[in-house]
Simulated scan of single mutants.
Amino acid sequence: MDRITVRLPPDLTRRFDAAAAARGGRSRLLRRLIERAAEAALPAVLDAPKAAASVKLTLRLAEPDLAVLAREAARTGLSRTQWSVALLRRRLHDRPQFTPVERVELVEVRRELRRIGVNINQIARALNTAVMEGHVLDLEVAQLANFQTEIAAWVDALGDAFQGNLDYWRDRS
């Protein structure tokens, strides 16, 4: 006999159970509803197969492998499923797979680069509109050089983050 599994929110489950109690229980009511649906003429929209957003994949692992997977997933802040999906996506699509912590850090890098960019635009605007004496101009140019150094460091850090991510998910065999 085939099995159909359905995930429902708790509230809907309670309401269904209440309705099913007077009709012989969950299984009996579900079987009747499915039989009626199978006998009824379904609209053409329901007849056409729909592309699934995702499909379940089940893996069987030996206990030692599962323990290593659980440790590695916990170390990266991911569930076992999230870690496994990230590994598969990295291998299938050859793109970095970032953990939630890494994504937060990348948002911080982006924020810092934007801040620096705003400062550089302000300095450039001031240099273009102001008449400055030699010493003041030298200070502004020095500030631009400092920003250039800071941007280079952030870009290097970003490159290191991407390379580290790619290295982590690379085939280790």
Rank of each mutant, 00 (worst) to 15 (best):
A62C: 14
G25Q: 05
L78M: 14
K50L: 14
L88H: 05
R3V: 13
R3G: 04
T81R: 13
R32V: 11
E35K: 03
T58S: 12
W83Y: 15
G25N: 00
A37Y: 15
T58H: 07
V45R: 15
R31F: 00
K56R: 14
S84A: 15
A18C: 01
A48Y: 04
A41D: 14
E72C: 02
L57Y: 06
E39P: 06
A22T: 12
R71G: 03
A18D: 11
A41E: 14
L59R: 09
A70S: 13
L87P: 02
I4S: 06
D11Y: 05
D47F: 10
T76Q: 15
A53G: 10
A44S: 10
D17Y: 02
K56V: 12
L8V: 12
R90N: 12
R60G: 04
E72Q: 13
V45M: 13
L87C: 09
L12G: 01
L8C: 00
R32D: 11
L12A: 09
P64M: 07
L78V: 03
A86P: 02
A18H: 09
F16D: 04
P10G: 03
L29Q: 03
A70N: 11
R31T: 08
D65C: 11
D65W: 11
A41N: 10
T58E: 10
L57K: 14
A21H: 10
G77H: 00
V45T: 15
V68F: 00
G25A: 01
R26S: 02
A62W: 08
H93Y: 13
T81H: 12
A38N: 08
I34L: 15
D17V: 04
A74C: 02
P43I: 04
A74H: 11
V6C: 09
L61W: 00
L57M: 12
I4A: 01
S54T: 11
A20E: 02
L30C: 10
W83L: 04
A86W: 01
R75Y: 03
D11L: 07
S54G: 08
T76Y: 10
E39V: 05
Q82M: 09
L33V: 03
G77C: 06
S79C: 08
F16M: 04
R7L: 11
V85R: 13
L46S: 04
V45C: 08
L42A: 15
R7M: 09
R75G: 09
R31K: 05
A22L: 10
L92P: 09
P10E: 05
S27T: 12
G24W: 06
A67P: 07
A70V: 10
D17Q: 12
A38D: 05
L61A: 09
V6A: 10
E39A: 15
A38C: 13
S27F: 07
F16V: 04
A40E: 14
V6T: 02
L78K: 00
L66V: 05
V45I: 13
R80C: 04
V85W: 00
R91S: 03
